[in-house]
Computed example of a mutant assay.
Amino acid sequence: MPITPDEMAARALRRGDESLFDASQEWHRANWHEDPTINPPPATDWAHRAARGIVQELSDDHGAYLEEAFHMERVGEEDRRAIIETMAAIIRRAAVESAGQ
């Protein structure tokens, strides 16, 4: 049975919680061998968490281009943070605009 979009979204959020695209290089070096759910830098809010989940979903099984675009070792720390911050801002803005309709 194929996975539903809601199941995919829940999985992406869980994986985003574990694979912290925007965490610092220092955190990744200190925690690479640990369970990532033990000491993760928390998301600042629901939109930040959603952005992490989106990046995790896009970086997995969507072809080499997206996997390369969101490969943690190929994207610098500042750029990773900027990607997540921008996605989170877009998500927040969409929620604000949707609430106004």
Rank of each mutant, 00 (worst) to 15 (best):
residue 86 T to K: 04
residue 50 A to N: 07
residue 44 T to M: 11
residue 7 E to V: 04
residue 11 R to L: 06
residue 57 E to W: 15
residue 60 D to N: 10
residue 82 A to T: 05
residue 3 I to W: 08
residue 85 E to R: 11
residue 24 S to I: 05
residue 29 R to L: 08
residue 79 D to K: 11
residue 9 A to L: 11
residue 34 E to M: 09
residue 36 P to G: 03
residue 42 P to R: 15
residue 40 P to I: 09
residue 21 F to M: 02
residue 100 G to S: 12
residue 8 M to Y: 06
residue 12 A to E: 08
residue 14 R to T: 11
residue 86 T to G: 06
residue 92 R to Q: 12
residue 80 R to G: 05
residue 51 A to F: 10
residue 81 R to D: 00
residue 9 A to M: 09
residue 17 D to L: 01
residue 47 A to K: 07
residue 13 L to N: 00
residue 76 G to K: 11
residue 6 D to G: 00
residue 70 F to K: 06
residue 30 A to Q: 15
residue 52 R to V: 02
residue 53 G to W: 07
residue 58 L to A: 13
residue 26 E to I: 10
residue 34 E to P: 01
residue 21 F to V: 05
residue 85 E to N: 13
residue 88 A to K: 05
residue 40 P to E: 09
residue 41 P to A: 08
residue 55 V to W: 07
residue 2 P to R: 15
residue 57 E to A: 14
residue 79 D to V: 07
residue 21 F to T: 04
residue 94 A to W: 11
residue 51 A to P: 06
residue 1 M to I: 09
residue 47 A to P: 09
residue 58 L to P: 03
residue 13 L to F: 04
residue 49 R to W: 02
residue 13 L to A: 02
residue 59 S to F: 04
residue 27 W to H: 09
residue 39 N to R: 14
residue 50 A to V: 04
residue 41 P to Q: 10
residue 18 E to H: 09
residue 91 I to H: 02
residue 45 D to G: 13
residue 62 H to T: 08
residue 26 E to T: 15
residue 66 L to P: 03
residue 3 I to S: 12
residue 44 T to W: 10
residue 48 H to M: 07
residue 47 A to G: 13
residue 92 R to W: 08
residue 48 H to C: 03
residue 75 V to K: 06
residue 40 P to H: 11
residue 55 V to T: 06
residue 87 M to W: 06
residue 97 E to S: 12
residue 29 R to G: 00
residue 63 G to V: 09
residue 2 P to I: 10
residue 96 V to T: 13
residue 98 S to T: 14
residue 52 R to K: 05
residue 78 E to F: 04
residue 88 A to F: 10
residue 84 I to M: 02
residue 90 I to F: 13
residue 11 R to M: 08
residue 7 E to L: 10
residue 2 P to K: 13
residue 60 D to R: 14
residue 7 E to F: 02
residue 38 I to K: 08
residue 12 A to L: 07
residue 57 E to V: 05
residue 3 I to P: 01
residue 65 Y to R: 13
residue 27 W to V: 03
residue 87 M to V: 04
residue 12 A to Y: 08
residue 65 Y to E: 12
residue 81 R to S: 00
residue 69 A to M: 14
residue 14 R to A: 14
residue 22 D to V: 01
residue 46 W to C: 05
residue 64 A to N: 07
residue 5 P to W: 07
residue 98 S to G: 14
residue 97 E to Q: 15
residue 41 P to K: 12
residue 83 I to R: 01
residue 63 G to W: 06
residue 24 S to A: 10
